[in-house]
């Protein structure tokens, strides 16, 4: 079943709660990539991120009653929270950051030297980010995730905007201190 833009997430979830596997398929195809991206930012590991997203969706299928529409929360906000919790569990069990062989950059640089320097900077950034306290790390990942506003990030964490901004400020202050030579 291809995506059905005429059916919103709440309706899909109602159908999933009624046992519709087709509705579940639509929801999975619609949202897998976005939740994978967030999971990857946390765990920096492709297989780990895929396992986390798979686990989260399968848990939703097994017990769709966990989603309560009367909570007045968007599905994505609630599901981001589920994924974040799974990421934090994963990190507690595994090494803090299992970096990929090559630090990933989102833009291309023509010069090899520049690319190497940037890769080193990114690797250091990931290492230092991974050592931040959990809540600061979570706030940072959510705020720099594409498509999420600060308010959405605050909603996912269950805190107000001011608290989120305070976490971000503290996280960045720590990173600036530790990465002085790269800035």
């Amino acid at each position: 079943m291809a995506d059905r833009p005429d059916i919103n997430d709440d309706e899909l979830l109602e159908r999933i709660q009624d046992g519709s596997h087709e509705a579940f398929s639509v929801l999975v195809r619609r949202h897998t990539e976005r939740f994978y991206r967030l999971a990857f930012r946390f765990v920096q590991n492709k297989e780990g991120a895929e396992d986390i997203v798979q686990d989260a969706f399968v848990k939703l299928w097994e017990d769709p009653a966990k989603w309560r529409p009367e909570r007045n929360t968007k599905f994505t906000t609630w599901f981001y929270r589920v994924v974040v919790n799974l990421c934090l569990d994963w990190q507690r069990k595994k090494r803090p950051t299992e970096l990929e062989d090559e630090a990933l950059l989102s833009d291309e640089r023509p010069s090899v030297d520049e690319r190497l320097i940037r890769a080193e900077e990114q690797a250091m950034l990931e290492k230092e980010t991974a050592s931040l306290p959990e809540r600061q790390r979570t706030a940072l990942h959510l705020c720099f995730e594409e498509g999420l506003s600060n308010q959405e990030a605050a909603d996912i964490m269950g805190i107000n905007l001011k608290a989120l901004q305070s976490l971000i400020m503290r996280a960045k202050a720590t990173l600036k201190e530790r990465m002085r030579s790269y800035l």
Binding site: R29, L104, L105
Partner: peptide, 30 residues
């Protein structure tokens, strides 16, 4: 620092990730 945080890349997921999830759920009762 903001630029570095935004430049963090994400490795693309497996192409069949969504289908694997759908298939796994098919065999699981609610």
């Amino acid at each position: 620092l903001d630029a570095m945080l935004r430049a963090r890349g994400v490795k693309a997921p497996s192409e069949d990730l969504a289908e694997r999830i759908i298939l796994q759920a098919r065999g699981i009762p609610q």
